[in-house]
Design a protein around this nucleic acid. Structure first.
Length: 96
DNA sequence: CTAATGACCATTA
DNA sequence: ATAATGGCCATTA
């Protein structure tokens, strides 16, 4: 796997249950501040079970995509007690 | 090497 | 509110 991908997965693994981060924030953390899109691409191809890729959302708070479907992503977030209002995750759950 | 593809983003219509 | 558009950039073909 590429170094970029490994960095994305490593950082994503640290997002605690009940919290979320944005694609842009991940990009910033790994030193590629304009690579939000490639971050999404990397998460789409994530092979590890212990990286919670469902906890990564868009910059505007909307849920964003998921390899197994948006519906599944919503259910996983709901199971962690994350509240969504008007298709947007509440800012209180988002870590910068 | 070039061209196309996106789990994105900001702006505009 | 949605839709289109242009930009972005790692990865893949």
């Amino acid at each position: 796997m590429s170094n970029f991908q490994e960095k994305v997965w490593k950082v994503t693994k640290k997002i605690p249950r009940g919290k979320v981060a944005t694609y842009t924030a991940i990009a910033r953390k790994i030193g590629h501040p304009r690579s939000a899109r490639p971050v999404g691409n990397a998460l789409n191809r994530n092979p590890y079970r212990d990286v919670p890729c469902h906890r990564v959302i868009r910059a505007d708070g909307s849920v964003g995509g998921f390899a197994r479907g948006t519906k599944a992503k919503l259910n996983l977030l709901k199971d962690e007690g994350i509240k969504i209002v008007g298709h947007k995750v509440r800012p209180k759950y988002i870590i910068t």
